[in-house]
Design a protein around this nucleic acid. Structure first.
Lengths: 161, 161
DNA sequence: GGCGCTCTACTCGGATAAAAGCTGTCCGAGTGCGCGTGG
DNA sequence: CCACGCGCACTCGGACAGCTTTTATCCGAGTAGAGCGCC
């Protein structure tokens, strides 16, 4: 069970978009070149973000993506779920109904106990992601990345808005 | 990102094995029939449990599997990791090194900030699974399943040990 | 009666294969901006 | 100088292909117990 690489890509893309001036759009091409990933496939991931109302897009030249909200109002969970889907990582196929001793008219009252535990673990994972905001990531990055690299990266990006 | 169906299977199998008398072995065939899953493929999952020292196996007739430890000393995490592997659900491909502004001799001091957050979420998931023991599942099941079904199920199983 | 042999039921591990999901590519349609041309 | 139209750069969406993982299935090798025959 491994998350799609698209998850990593869009998280980094959001970090870049968060540093953009208001109402500036960045094209898929620029984001793909900056991160060294295939443009067309990254485009699919960004479309998912768009459908989830995390980013907004403009067509035509000087078009591209920008964040739909302030970075402090975007959680990691939103971004991850936009790409991976909101479904739980554990699916219960109700294996217990195959029990040969089970009467045909037996009716379950609760979801399977195994599934309940697995869903709780899934929820713990989501809760952690929900607690981290995009602005937290930007704060961390701006502290850890050397100032000159930080600056030149945004100059590189701004040339392509 | 969805867990293997084998995870569900082995969790239910462990619940059955936990209810077995000491030193009785249950065959793959019986476990597969009881849960209505393919015998040979379930066998692969049980082999993983065996390699992780969660169950022990005996060859020959009246052979099969039994738990290697007391149910209160087996965590959900052990079982899930035996099947899914211990690797994190998020793999960092170090996308940041593709930054075109990055000097060639630049050396990272810390793992990527994005990865660190994702790994924390992964750890939250594992921590939850680590906190639940197999004996907790058995307790819950024995309360929720009607006594007659519980009893007849174990009679069915005991006939095949 | 005791020893050993065979037979059987089971696990283990490898080889194989179908199905599904992930990763990546390609192309046509639609859209908005800028440029050029003509009034 | 202004208006209109054309072309370009971009997004969007669908179609498609290769690869990996998941989900199986099959079969031979090895093992332990049961039953049988032989001494």
């Amino acid at each position: 069970m491994i998350l799609k690489s698209q998850v990593e890509w869009v998280l980094h893309c959001c970090a870049i978009l968060a540093g953009l001036p208001e109402n500036r759009y960045l094209s898929t091409k620029a984001l793909a070149e900056f991160h060294g990933v295939p443009k067309e496939y990254l485009s699919k991931a960004l479309q998912s973000l768009s459908q989830a109302s995390i980013v907004v897009t403009t067509l035509g030249p000087s078009g591209g993506y920008r964040l739909a909200k302030v970075p402090s109002e975007i959680t990691f969970l939103e971004i991850v779920e936009a790409v991976e889907g909101k479904a739980s990582t554990f699916v219960c196929s109700n294996i217990r109904t195959n029990n040969p001793c089970r009467p045909a008219d037996y009716c379950e009252t609760k979801p399977c106990a195994v599934a309940r535990i697995m869903w709780e673990a899934d929820e713990a994972w989501r809760a952690k992601l929900r607690s981290v905001k995009l602005s937290d990531l930007v704060d961390t990055l701006s502290k850890e990345i050397p100032a000159d690299l930080w600056k030149s990266s945004f100059e590189w990006v701004l040339q392509r808005t």
